[in-house]
Computed example of a mutant assay.
Amino acid sequence: MDEAMVRRVVLTFYARVRADPTLGPIFDTEIQDGWDHHLAKMCDFWSSVMLMTGRYKGKPMVAHLRLKDVRPDHFEQWLTLFRETARAECPRHIAQLFIDRAERIAESLQLGMFFQPHAGQAGAVRLPRSEAS
């Protein structure tokens, strides 16, 4: 795995997100004309996650907490697109590393955004699980 592979996964994934009828409008509303900046930031993020480069200096939870149109089911769609992208762009063992990390990130973001310990069963969030598990 190298920077070129990380970049390919990120760019291919976000092209799929932008084309997705559910996720595309959510991302376009938030990012507007800042896609070049967002893609560069996501390359830094995934480089830090996968290659431990330390290039990403942001706070993903803070950024996601500002999003008001995102629902828990959007994360499953995000993960579906991510899994497809990783499997298409990477050798199997590397794709699984990407997927494992994406699932942990999605779970963490969902807990931060939607977990309501006093909401009871109605407020429960279904956390994604690996399709490989």
Rank of each mutant, 00 (worst) to 15 (best):
A88R: 04
F115G: 06
L127I: 05
R16S: 13
L111H: 08
R16C: 09
G120Y: 06
S108P: 10
A119S: 11
E3T: 10
R7Y: 08
A86W: 00
R104K: 12
K68I: 13
L51R: 06
R66G: 10
S133A: 13
R55T: 08
L97E: 15
D36G: 07
E89L: 15
D28S: 06
C43R: 01
L51P: 03
L11G: 13
E107N: 11
A19T: 11
S48Y: 02
E76F: 15
L97N: 12
A95H: 02
P117Y: 02
R7S: 15
V17Y: 04
L39A: 02
L97D: 15
G54Y: 09
I31V: 15
M50C: 00
E84F: 07
R8H: 10
F114I: 11
R16L: 10
A15Q: 13
L79Q: 04
F114H: 07
C43H: 01
S47N: 08
H37D: 13
D36F: 08
L127K: 00
D2F: 03
E84W: 04
H74A: 00
K57W: 10
F27T: 05
R87V: 13
H74K: 01
G58I: 06
K41N: 13
M52C: 05
G112I: 03
L11N: 15
V49I: 13
F114Q: 05
R18E: 15
H74P: 02
A119D: 05
A106S: 00
E103H: 09
S108Y: 10
V6M: 03
C90T: 03
I99D: 02
V62R: 12
L111F: 13
E103M: 09
G54R: 05
R92M: 11
P72D: 14
R71G: 08
F115Q: 11
L67W: 08
V125A: 04
L81K: 01
K68N: 14
Q77R: 15
Q77N: 15
V62P: 09
V49G: 10
A124P: 05
L39S: 00
P117M: 00
E3F: 02
T85I: 14
H93Y: 09
A15Y: 12
L65F: 09
Q77M: 12
E84L: 07
M5V: 13
S130D: 05
A124G: 09
V70Y: 03
I105V: 07
A19G: 12
D28M: 08
E76P: 07
F13V: 02
L97C: 11
F114C: 09
F13S: 01
A106I: 01
R104L: 06
L97R: 09
C90L: 11
V6A: 00
A119R: 08
F98W: 10
R92N: 13
E103F: 00
F45R: 00
H64N: 05
V6E: 07
E89S: 11
S47M: 03
T85D: 07
L97H: 10
E89A: 14
S130K: 03
H37C: 12
T29Y: 14
R18K: 12
C90Q: 01
S48I: 01
C90E: 03
P91H: 09
M52Q: 14
Y14G: 08
D69H: 15
Y14S: 11
T29F: 09
I94G: 06
H38W: 04
F13H: 02
F75M: 03
F114A: 08
